[in-house]
Design a protein around this nucleic acid. Structure first.
Lengths: 135, 135
DNA sequence: CAGCTCGCTCGACCGAGGTACAGGGTCCAT
DNA sequence: ATGGACCCTGTACCTCGGTCGAGCGAGCTG
């Protein structure tokens, strides 16, 4: 299972301890018997992590996924918050992408006429307060 | 300066040591005199970090930005790699967003009819090898 | 000039997220 | 029935990205 999810077996136990992975049934001998969902959850965790989410964030996403714990209204509200966050992230990555694309486009120009991705990023910095900013 | 960039002063020195931040001029007394670029670079670092990039990745992005170290062809090639990576990331986030949007849409339904964001994510898992997967 | 704040260096420490290792049980193939 | 490849628990340790503190100098302010 660890192999199928492409993580270290220890990591699975760690996630279980953290409450990210539902504690699976055990065989008579105490072996964990993971359902087919488990691999997918782990893959999701790994992908989300690589996209800049902390395990705590991911836990709350997973809770949402399993039919939110609280009322429908709460679920809706939380989801909408997450969606807004995603929109910010997507916009940021798109800005980076655009900046790099411009760099490639101006690549033939002498080095000084090349546009700098950071400038591009920064010029569009909304001076806002990204919650991910000061953890 | 640390305040303007909204980071701990120590963090600036840490970035400097890591080579992320160009080592600034020093005053007679040894004080660092940062140019105006510095704040923007730090902000870029922080944003990229929150989007799931490691400091090493960010360093290479910054090097690209400062008119790549090597030939134009190399710069172009590296940039195109990064752009492809960004496209994957953007697609992932968009898939998550879509899944959450569906969750909200089906929110009124009984809990079991609600669609699960993970399933959605996973169903579209390309079984590929995301380089960010096993660091 | 005393006192305060701020910057400097250098080394120790911290929290998140794992990973390794010791000591032991299980399974199953030869 | 025995060897090797797994699994279990528990505790210790590691990396990354910072952060804190000690000890000292710089620079303003009353």
């Amino acid at each position: 299972m660890a192999a199928r999810a492409r993580v270290n077996p220890q990591t699975l136990r760690y996630y279980e301890r953290r409450g990210l992975l539902p504690r699976p049934e055990r065989s008579a001998a105490g072996y964990r018997a993971y359902g087919p969902q488990a691999v997918q959850i782990v893959r999701f965790i790994k992908r989300a992590q690589g996209r800049g989410f902390a395990l705590d964030d991911i836990e709350s996403l997973l809770q949402l996924a399993q039919g939110g714990p609280a009322s429908c209204d709460t679920t809706r509200a939380v989801s909408e918050e997450k969606i807004a966050d995603l929109d910010v992230r997507i916009a940021d990555l798109q800005a980076m992408r655009a900046a790099l694309a411009r760099l490639v486009a101006t690549c033939e120009q002498p080095r000084d006429h090349r546009e700098c991705p950071i400038q591009a990023q920064v010029t569009s910095d909304p001076e806002d307060g990204d919650p991910e900013d000061r953890p």
